Every structure is written in structure tokens, then in C-alpha cells.
Simulated assay, not measured.
Amino acid sequence: MSTVPTATISRLVTYLRILTQLEAQGIKKTSSEHLADEAQVSAFQVRKDLAYFGRFGTRGAGYTVPTLRRELRRILGLTRSWSAAIVGMGRLGEAIAHYPNFGAYDFLLKGAFDIDPHKVGREVAGLTVQHVDELPRVVREKGIDIGFITVPHEAAQDAADALVRAGVKGILNFAPTVIDVPKEIHVEPVDFLAGLKRLSFYILNPQLREEVA
């Protein structure tokens, strides 16, 4: 398989959401045009994105909704459960821990960590907050795959280092800073302030909105 653009993976997530809604409505068939309209891209873009992974539709007949949804779940790795842990149990960490829909998508929150003695030992969303020093043991015993970093930016690199040493292979980084990890570790940044800044730019400069890649 050739290298798949990050933007394509993001759009696959959007297509999956649309297909899930269609299936819930009892709709059995759809088209690239309909997916494109709902995702606000072109039909050509939809077909191009899907073509990275094979052929899923029939010319003139479109896509079978349950089949394409199942294939996208497989491609995105959503046919198995993923275990996650949070490092940083301040307000953001607690808010994420209380998010009600992890289980609906087979993401299981199995650990909560901090270094603050006032937070360690507390109960949050059914989990006991543990010291970061316990990460390696908990990751090993509970098979944790993903780490959420929700610490202040100045502590993010230490949190990332701890997750990497513990054996976590993927990190969702909510701290507004870039972290340095080995190349085999994938990091997804979640920076809502950066999003707000981009939003303000495009509101002021709508003519400069970039075309979908």
C-alpha cells in the first residue's frame, strides 16, 4: 500500500460517521456523491480516498452501506478493543475520564495517572488515580495501547517519556506543545487553541481557504 495522507484518514473517520448514521436510519445503499455532500468534499475525493484500500462499490450502483461501514471499521482498526490511560488528572483529564461514549467505540479507559500527591489515590470515573511511577506495571498488566497527555505544556515531554518507557505505542497529546518521541510511536495532537486561531484566520479571509488535499 502506498503512503496514505493524514487528511485521507481523517476523512475516512468522517465517512464512517456518515455511514453509521445511514445504517441507523435503515438506508442500505449510498453513493460517492451523497458521502461527498455530507462530508463537504468532492465525489472524486471520496473515490480517491477509498481507492487507497481497495474497491468497495459498483459503478452505477454505489456502495452497500453495511459493507462499506464494516470495511472502514476494519481499516481504521475499530474491530478490536483499545485500552487507554490518562496522564494528568486535572480538570481536562477528569473531563475526558467522564466522557460517556468510550465504550461505544471499543476504547476502554483503564488507567489514570498523576504526580500530584493530592490527586493520587482519588477516585475518578471508577478509576483510582495512580502515580506515574506505576505506569509500566499497569500498562503491562492491563495491556494499555494508548496514552492521553493532559498535563500542562511544560510537563508534556516528561509525560510522553513515561508513556514511551512503559510501552505505549500511541499518544493523544492535548498539551499545547510538540513532544519528541521515537519514530515508531504515533502522536496525534489535539490543540483546540490552534483550531481557534485557524478559524479566526479563515473567517477574516474566506477567499484563502485551502482546497481539500
Results as ranks from 00 to 15, higher is better:
68 L>H: 07
92 L>Y: 07
98 H>R: 14
61 A>I: 03
129 V>E: 13
77 G>N: 13
107 F>I: 15
116 D>W: 05
85 A>D: 10
120 V>T: 10
102 F>E: 14
77 G>F: 11
57 G>I: 02
93 G>M: 07
94 E>G: 02
102 F>N: 13
66 P>D: 10
96 I>H: 13
128 T>V: 12
117 P>C: 01
116 D>P: 04
103 G>D: 15
100 P>C: 07
115 I>P: 00
76 L>G: 13
56 F>E: 08
89 M>P: 02
121 G>P: 09
119 K>G: 02
68 L>D: 09
117 P>G: 02
64 T>I: 06
127 L>C: 01
124 V>E: 09
86 I>K: 09
115 I>A: 00
96 I>F: 10
79 T>S: 14
123 E>N: 08
64 T>V: 09
80 R>E: 15
111 G>E: 04
100 P>W: 09
112 A>L: 10
98 H>A: 08
54 G>C: 03
100 P>Y: 13
81 S>I: 06
105 Y>F: 12
63 Y>G: 09
56 F>W: 06
62 G>W: 07
67 T>L: 01
92 L>D: 07
86 I>S: 09
104 A>K: 15
109 L>A: 01
58 T>C: 02
116 D>Y: 02
71 E>L: 00
94 E>W: 00
104 A>R: 15
73 R>K: 14
99 Y>N: 11
70 R>W: 02
116 D>K: 06
121 G>M: 03
59 R>H: 11
101 N>Y: 15
89 M>W: 04
99 Y>C: 02
92 L>T: 11
